[in-house]
């Protein structure tokens, strides 16, 4: 496994508050990572450390074998796109792309033009006069067209409406196929983005509570669907994540691996076993009090 990003015992404190607590993980080149966590879990703090916006209080970060902070070679390869309001940015949209052209070695002008066109972004309009949705579209255009080897999107898609977000997800996957890079997508819109993630990191209260590939994560639970009385009987004693009933049919998400015997038994009584969804797992893993 190539360790493109290596994080060891990372800690970050503001005054007396510890926001990142001893986090270690490594990420490979060319994969799409989902970083999920509740509000205030420390997602943005972690990402701003990766992007050299800040320095860790303790622990180390290495990108491509080097410490990224104030490292000109690494910093120009990391694009950190976060939800910002551009309220002081009175220069026209075009100027932002002039800057990218000068300072982002992999910036693709043609691709930027294509995205600007698709998002219907006016080049001459001052950035701070754009609507919230258009600002978000500008932001993701900057992120995608920079083609930085490490591209971090931190809730950058919040202002966009659903069709625009769908277009963005599709575009991200297509561009990833053309120019593979390491994406880190932080979100709490888990249910609509989960299909993008190859690996998932879940942080909760400044700690990394889970890091594995998407398949492994969702195999930690199962969705049992079928006749409601049979389902109830089957899931008795198991940790329930959520449940839904429609007529006589019931679907229950459970946490924990099912043994082969259990799976066999379920099938024999006519129950359907499906994958659990990431959203339910996420809610369970980051419940209050945990």
């Amino acid at each position: 496994m190539n360790k493109f990003i290596e994080v060891n015992n990372l800690c970050l404190s503001y005054k007396n508050q510890q926001v990142i607590k001893n986090i270690s993980f490594s990420l490979e080149q060319g994969k799409i990572y989902g970083l999920i966590g509740r509000n205030g879990a420390g997602k943005t703090s972690l990402l701003s450390l990766l992007a050299s916006f800040n320095q860790p209080t303790a622990g180390t970060i290495k990108i491509d074998g080097e410490v990224p902070f104030e490292n000109a070679r690494i910093m120009q390869e990391v694009a950190f796109i976060y939800d910002r309001d551009f309220k002081d940015e009175s220069s026209p949209v075009k100027e932002m792309f002039d800057t990218l052209k000068r300072y982002r070695p992999n910036f693709d002008e043609e691709y930027a033009k294509y995205l600007l066109d698709r998002f219907e972004l006016p080049l001459k309009k001052p950035v701070n006069k754009l609507s919230k949705g258009k600002k978000a579209a500008l932001n993701v255009t900057i992120g995608l067209s920079s083609r930085a080897p490490i591209t971090i999107f931190d809730e950058a898609y919040l202002g966009m409406d659903a069709p625009t977000r769908t277009f963005f997800y599709k575009e991200l996957l297509e561009d990833q196929a053309r120019y593979p890079r390491t994406f880190i997508l932080s979100t709490h819109l888990v249910s609509e983005m989960d299909y993008l993630f190859e690996e998932v990191l879940i942080i909760h209260r400044g700690e990394l509570v889970f890091h594995d590939d998407f398949e492994t994560l969702i195999s930690r639970g199962a969705a049992i669907t079928g006749d409601f009385s049979k389902v109830d009987q089957f899931v008795q004693g198991k940790k329930k994540l959520s449940e839904q009933t429609l007529g006589r049919t019931k679907s229950v998400m459970i946490y924990g691996n099912l043994t082969e015997e259990e799976k066999e038994k379920a099938r024999s009584i006519g129950l359907d076993i499906g994958p659990v969804n990431l959203q339910d797992l996420f809610i369970y893993l980051t419940e209050e009090g945990k």
């Binding site: 050299s52 916006f53 490292n71 000109a72 910093m75 120009q76 390869e77 694009a79 800057t99 990218l100």
Partner: peptide, 16 residues
């Protein structure tokens, strides 16, 4: 106040 953050966002070091 405005230019240093802008350039760091564009991958420039504080030193440069």
């Amino acid at each position: 106040i405005s230019c240093l953050p802008y350039y760091v966002q564009n991958g420039i070091t504080r030193r440069d």
